[in-house]
Design a protein around this nucleic acid. Structure first.
Length: 466
RNA sequence: GGCGCUGUACCCAAGUGGUAAGGGAGUAGUCUGCAAAACUAUCAUUCACCGGUUCAAAUCCGGUCGGCGCCUCCA
């Protein structure tokens, strides 16, 4: 039985899809005006675990994600502007090219992390018409007003405003950190359509019944999810920061528009934090996946690190913690590689009860609101169990890796097959046998300059790529 | 200020009222010409602190102190 948390009601309950065997899921995607940092990527990782767990439970998944490629792009007040944007502009790329560039970079990152690509990916700029239709519908139903040139959503007209976030219990601090928008009738109202931009040089603008302008930022998720997943679907996810504002407003405008319940279950991924707080592009410590790779880590080392914490807990990033993940993954790999030398992968349906217990434990743990840390512990226990045969272990590990996605059964190290180099290795081992260690070490150094490292083991020597 | 989350070993981190998962690091040992790896063992009488409930509390309740997040674009 799959149990998942629901931000609505703040409780873990059994997951039941609207339609038997099928799940529709919408995930808030990236804003593509900069590289994703490793904190952003944590959320997509969590959604990947969710999607794969649903698949493991036999569901057919319709997985939709938006690309926010509208807005933000001419806001030069942002101190953290990436050099790439500047470079792109200097090269004369327009905002659409910039968006495309970072969208591509985003999917390169997620691919490196073995994150499945959603089967529906939708760009906001390609759905302006759908957004306008939504605003028109809201206008007809009387949920909007126009003020200072912009179309606003009147939150007091929507009865359950802020229900999921529990805003009624919160004494919100309006306007303490930013100036209040004087044009709003209520502090929580939000813009559906801008014609009077706060950025003077807004690069992307479209014609609309209210004049030339651009959509408010909550609008895209409502419009596109309605289009691709319908007016009632199973799961909507995103980062925790979206609970109070973004998702609250999405619910308000969508349910006001359709007049019915929209999303059954909301899941929110917690933040990756530094010692100094959350990772953000305006602070030091803005790390991208490529920064990690440049420092000698593999993308999957980072994935292992993420698996070690539950998605609803904040996770503290440190190099020491990442090193721990790297070493652990290396240890698993080396054990799995020896298993593969000993045996073929057994058929998962024909394994002993003892081995099957690990499979069941793993399923129970992942189905328990995605408890990946427990799943890793199951993997380690299996690896260390002396009563389970190598082939059975491999079968269960292969199964676990459907969720973990660490490429555990893929031979990681490239082994040398070049006869010339292997002859050198033989020569070195002969020298070694004759206790001629000087020559042996010279050959080792020679091989190293060619990019190969000698690994001696009780069963013989081999050459691996550095 | 309000709301939410949180405080578990040197580090990261699970934990369903029944006596502290797992990983990393460390330590000891095996192996070893060296290097690397591997393997074995070991590693919290205790869960921020103080009270309470209970036969039994890391888990429940109250209080104190600390951390993080949201209330602004944000994963």
């Amino acid at each position: 039985m799959l149990k998942l948390y629901n931000t609505i009601g703040r409780e873990i309950t059994e997951f039941k899809p609207i339609e038997d065997g099928k799940v529709s899921i919408y995930c808030c995607g990236p804003t593509v005006y900069n590289f994703a940092h490793i904190g952003n990527l944590r959320t997509y990782f969590f959604e990947d675990i969710l999607v794969k767990t649903l698949k493991l439970n036999g569901f057919n998944i319709k997985h939709c994600m938006n690309i926010t490629d509208v807005g933000h792009l001419t806001d030069d007040g942002d101190d953290g502007e990436d050099k790439m944007i500047k470079a792109s502009r200097e090269k004369g790329m327009d905002v659409y090219d910039i968006a495309k560039f970072f969208e591509k970079a985003f999917f390169e990152d997620t691919q490196k992390l073995n994150i499945l690509k959603p089967n529906i990916i939708c760009q906001a700029t390609k759905h302006i018409g759908d957004m306008i239709k939504l605003v028109k519908g809201l206008e007809e139903k009387g949920f909007t007003y126009i003020s200072n040139g912009n179309v606003y959503f009147n939150t007091t007209k929507f009865q359950d405003y802020g229900l999921m976030a529990g805003l009624d219990k919160q004494d919100l601090n309006f306007g303490t950190s930013t100036e209040l928008d004087e044009a709003k009738q209520n502090p929580q109202d939000f813009v559906l359509w801008f014609t009077n931009s706060k950025f003077e040089n807004q690069a992307m603008q479209w014609n609309s019944p209210w004049g030339k302008g651009y959509p408010g930022w909550h609008l895209e998720c409502s419009a596109m999810s309605l289009k691709y997943l319908g007016d009632h679907f199973d799961i909507h996810c995103g980062g925790v920061d979206h609970v109070n504002i973004h998702h609250t407003n999405e619910i308000a405008q969508t349910e006001a528009y359709t007049g019915k319940k929209w999303v059954n279950r909301w899941l929110h991924g917690e933040f990756l934090v530094n010692k100094t707080g959350k990772m953000s592009k305006s602070k030091d410590g803005f790390l991208t996946l490529n920064t990690l790779i440049d420092k000698g880590y593999k993308a999957l080392d980072y994935r292992y690190f993420l698996l070690g914490a539950h998605y609803r807990s904040q996770l503290t990033f440190s190099w020491e913690a990442l090193d721990a993940g790297k070493s652990a993954l290396k240890g698993i790999r080396s054990r799995v590689q020896s298993l593969m030398k000993e045996s073929e992968v057994f058929n998962i349906n024909k394994i002993s009860d003892k081995a099957a217990k690990y499979k069941t434990d793993f399923e129970n743990h992942i189905n328990d609101d995605l408890n990946t840390p427990r799943c890793l512990a199951d993997l380690w226990d299996l690896l260390k169990d002396k009563e389970v045969s190598s082939g059975e272990k491999l079968a269960v590990i292969e199964y676990m890796d459907k969720i973990l996605s660490l490429d555990l059964l893929v031979a990681e190290k490239e082994l040398c097959t070049d006869p010339e180099l292997l002859a050198l290795l033989d020569k070195r081992n002969i020298a070694r046998g004759n206790k001629d260690y000087k020559s042996a070490d010279e050959i080792r150094a020679q091989l190293l300059t060619k990019g190969w490292i000698i690994k001696d083991s009780p069963t013989g020597s081999s050459l691996e790529r550095v």
